[in-house]
């Protein structure tokens, strides 16, 4: 395989990956990866969520941590030295707590050294076009837009028209379980998510929107990576697989890099 993937083609600031595997993590130094994508950050600290935050599902889990994070400023201060030195592109993921947060968040990153791009976490109740336009007005950094499965196909084109450079399909699907008589909602993770994401990705690829597509959901093996690439993805994001088995994710990245070098 020959990899040099441009996630912001025709934009004033490019975002080139040398490897199609992007890892969602605050820091990563164990094997070659295309990019590091941070967990989603908000304008202010967020640490409270109702228990249980994690609920087992067959072959996966439901997470309700309400995007806990230290807030964008603290996180940037903590990591910017490492980012400045990083040869791997750093993409900072953002989630808004209020409709007008996007511009502030983007402006904070525009000043942060070592940041190569932004990933916006949207959901169906967020006005996606307004979020992207606010962000675009505040920064020239490439914008990846991570869509919810529910409406990814419906809003994909509008997101690109509003200024997004690439689409990430998708955020983890929502689910619920009843625990001790109470309904508990969250986002679902695990290998079983993969067919849903693959289906959505393939449908969006068929729209031929002319923008890079990044697949995210249930990826645990080299075969999974190849399946997404063949279904229309230009790159993939891996999230929970490394919590479960970081060593095998490192091997996966090596193997993909080896395929490129051959």
């Amino acid at each position: 395989m020959n990899f040099s993937i441009e996630l912001a083609p025709n934009w004033k600031r490019g975002l080139t990956l040398n490897h199609p595997v992007m890892i969602v993590t605050p820091s990563w130094d164990s094997s070659p990866v295309g990019a590091i994508v941070t967990p989603p950050l908000t304008a202010r600290l967020r640490a409270r969520a109702a228990d249980p935050r994690v609920i087992d599902l067959p072959g996966g889990f439901l997470l309700n941590s309400r995007a806990a994070n230290p807030g964008v400023s603290q996180f940037v201060e903590q990591h910017q030295r490492a980012w400045e030195k990083s040869v791997t592109p750093i993409i900072v993921a953002l989630a808004a707590q209020a409709a007008d947060d996007w511009a502030k968040l983007a402006a904070r990153l525009e000043r942060a050294p070592g940041v190569s791009g932004i990933e916006l976490h949207l959901n169906p109740v967020v006005d996606a076009v307004s979020a992207i336009q606010q962000t675009r007005a505040a920064t020239d950094l490439p914008i990846l837009t991570k869509l919810d499965l529910e409406n990814a196909r419906a809003i994909a084109r509008a997101c690109l028209d509003a200024g997004a450079n690439a689409l990430v399909i998708s955020r983890a699907p929502r689910g619920a379980r009843v625990i001790e008589g109470k309904i508990r909602r969250g986002r679902m993770y695990g290998p079983f998510v993969q067919p849903m994401v693959l289906n959505a990705l393939n449908e969006i690829a068929a729209l031929k929107l002319g923008a890079p597509l990044i697949a995210c959901g249930g990826i645990h093996s080299v075969e999974d990576v190849r399946a997404f690439l063949s279904a229309g993805a230009d790159a993939v994001e891996i999230d929970t697989a490394q919590w479960v088995d970081a060593a095998s994710v490192a091997r996966l990245c090596e193997e993909i890099a080896g395929a490129r070098d051959d």
């Binding site: 993590t25 640490a47 919590w243």
Partner: peptide
């Protein structure tokens, strides 16, 4: 879930912050 500071699922707000 991760044990190594990646997922933030175990976050608490202490007197010293996050």
């Amino acid at each position: 879930p991760c044990g190594v500071g990646e997922c933030f699922a175990c976050a608490i707000e202490s007197a010293r912050g996050f």
